[in-house]
Design a protein around this nucleic acid. Structure first.
Length: 565
RNA sequence: GCCCCCGUAGCUCAGUAGGAUAGAGCGGCGGAUUCCUAAUCCGCAGGCCACAGGUUCGAUCCCUGUCGGGGGUACCA
């Protein structure tokens, strides 16, 4: 499709003495079929040419001498609408996809650039709740989207493996812990201890003080504290990996907060040298008042470090180690101030790359209107959600397709697909409310809908049973739906670029729903494999183009596309 | 108090580098299966795009204000 945009842009540019890139940026896919395929709104030219947009459109229509692949130019008020020869359009798109297959939509635009992504980052010793689902799947999808556009993307799981909560946990385990329970079901045992600590602290606030003591010991290298900590961490990562495996996610690095313990002091030194750090209310801070922000606290009055200090050290370390062009923090919106402070301090330190750091904000997830809180113990385990979803998928398979082989494997893909896709149905910064009904819904705009459509497409190919020839004659595609479907497929690369621009995987998700809907309508109305072998071959070429598009799109979202379901 | 995000159909949400008659899904009602997977498709109902000004040829989108919801606001992350 990009060819056509370029051709049209050059055509217009020559006529109005404007550079063709500016014109091309003004071109758009026509929103409706009756407005042609590519539209050029003439408003931007009106001012400079001192004529009404409608008049400009008419003059342009008369002057332009389009090549044969542009089959028509129509004026609709201030719009100049270009119609592309259907055969040229369809073959441009379909042959492109059939050639690229799983690489369709990829580009080298950002080849040589590095993007570091900080995502998922759960807290050690806490269960993996649905609160962490967003960052995990959005981060994973952005990794894939960035890679598809040529980026060298580096995924970091910035584990919450340090901080005061470990003081609490060590206190709790030291007093009430059970080695047996811990090795049997580590996360549950640690979770119970954590909840119990907060319950007891309500009546006995002094144990908070003891917890702080334990954390100080941990920070200063106390052996007993470190051994507990090491054990908690190891067991936790093992549990998290189970979830990541199911989601098909891996990380390049698991460098958590503790990794930066020995890297904070030099940052603090630098801040002191630059006269940015100062004491206030017994804490070491960077004053940000003139930027309208509360201070960034580097050290508490008890000298213990804070996450801001660690994040500063981490950002600097990442720049030194990976020399990134972009550093993305895929983290909840409630940490916005923290990141604004962080980026501002980096800027004040004189790091020009501070502008390359971005907070990709995620909305909060609530459950039935309630805030989820690990402390209070009302948390939904992601593992439970995945299990329930899989079970439901299995049930539906038994009902609809009992002959299916490897039902369990398919149910896993579909069940997880439903849960993951649900995270992409609204923009990432919207707050959402978890509900079982929604998470376990397989009808309508859902992951299983896309997977089902994909399975249908695969089924057609199985039924057809022949390879698609390079020389297939696509002029047999004469149905209007075949043209609109091709047009839509041709918009895939644009949608990936939009998703990248806004760090918004939901763009791809919404686009895929459109493709699937368009295909299903087509499938309903038009029989694909027919007696006439030319027609069948042409239709199957289109079917395969749609199939690769959906498969690739799901891949970019981190969702598996089974061939049967 | 101050700062940030949000407000579109009964519900959940798309949509805007400002552009043509604002779109889906769910739920409701009514249809489609001797035929390539009905986890599908088709039709109907449902809208002062929170409200009021402003900028513009043109605003759901940009600016200002009001109302409503959420988050943050010095030693949690």
């Amino acid at each position: 499709m990009e060819n056509f945009f370029r051709i049209i842009a050059e055509l217009i540019a020559k006529e109005v003495q404007e550079d063709s890139e500016t014109i091309q940026a003004g071109l758009q896919f026509s929103p409706k079929d009756k407005f042609g395929d590519i539209a050029f709104p003439c408003f931007p030219l009106a001012k400079r040419m001192k004529k009404s947009p409608a008049l400009i459109a008419e003059e342009l229509r008369d002057k332009l001498k389009p090549p044969p692949e542009i089959s028509g130019i129509e004026v609709e008020g201030p719009y100049l609408n270009f119609r592309i020869d259907p055969y040229a359009l369809i073959s441009d798109v379909v042959f492109r996809v059939l050639k690229d297959r799983q690489e369709y939509g990829n580009s080298y635009q950002h080849h040589g650039e590095t993007a570091v992504m900080d995502y998922s980052s759960p807290n050690i010793a806490k269960p993996f709740g649905i609160g962490h689902l967003r960052t995990t799947v959005v981060g994973n999808s952005l990794m894939r989207i960035y890679r598809s556009q040529g980026y060298n993307a580096i995924g970091i799981n910035h584990l919450g493996d340090w901080g005061t909560q470990f003081g609490k946990l060590i206190y709790a385990y030291d007093n009430w812990g059970d080695q047996q329970k811990l090795s049997e079901n580590p996360i549950n045992e640690l979770f119970d201890l954590y909840v119990r600590f907060h319950r007891e602290a309500e009546d006995n606030p002094e144990i908070e003080e003891e917890a702080r003591e334990w954390f100080k010991k941990l920070e200063s290298g106390d052996e007993k504290a470190r051994e507990y900590w090491r054990q908690f961490k190891e067991l936790s990562i093992k549990e998290f990996d189970k979830i990541y495996n199911r989601l098909g996610i891996d990380f390049d690095y698991y460098t958590g907060e503790s990794f930066y313990n020995d890297k904070m002091e030099s940052v603090i030194e630098t801040l002191k040298e630059k006269k940015l750090a100062k004491m206030s209310q017994d804490a070491l801070i960077v004053d940000l008042e003139e930027y309208g922000m509360s201070p960034c606290i580097l050290k508490k009055k008890d000298e213990a470090s804070l996450y801001a200090t660690r994040d500063l050290a981490a950002a600097i370390y990442r720049k030194e180690t990976y020399d990134f062009d972009k550093l993305l923090y895929i983290v909840g919106v409630e940490q916005t101030l923290h990141f604004r402070q962080l980026f501002k301090v980096l800027e004040l330190m004189g790091f020009k790359w501070a502008k390359d750091c971005h907070h990709v904000e995620l909305g909060r997830i609530k459950f039935e209107g309630e805030e989820m809180s690990t402390r209070k113990g009302n948390i939904i385990f992601l593992e439970d959600v995945l299990d329930k979803s899989k079970k439901l998928a299995l049930q539906i398979i038994e009902e609809k397709n009992p002959e299916l082989e490897n039902k369990d494997e398919v149910a896993e893909k579909v069940g997880i697909g439903a849960v993951v896709f649900a995270q992409f149905t609204s923009k990432r910064n919207k707050n959402s409310s978890f509900s079982w009904d929604e998470a376990l819904n397989f009808d309508g705009n859902t992951g299983p809908y896309l997977q089902y459509t994909h399975a249908r497409l695969c089924s057609l190919q199985r039924k057809y049973g022949q390879e698609i020839s390079d020389s297939v004659d696509l002029t047999w595609l004469k149905q209007p739906q075949e043209l609109s479907l091709s047009k839509l497929v041709g918009q895939f690369p644009l949608n990936i670029k939009l998703a990248l621009r806004d760090n918004e995987p939901s763009v791809v998700a919404n686009y895929l729903l459109q493709v699937a809907a368009e295909f299903n309508t087509y499938y309903q109305k038009v029989r694909i494999i027919v007696d006439d072998s030319d027609t069948s071959a042409a239709r199957m070429a289109l079917v395969n183009a749609v199939r690769y598009t959906i498969e690739k799109g799901l891949l970019l979202l981190g969702i598996k596309a089974p061939e049967r379901m």
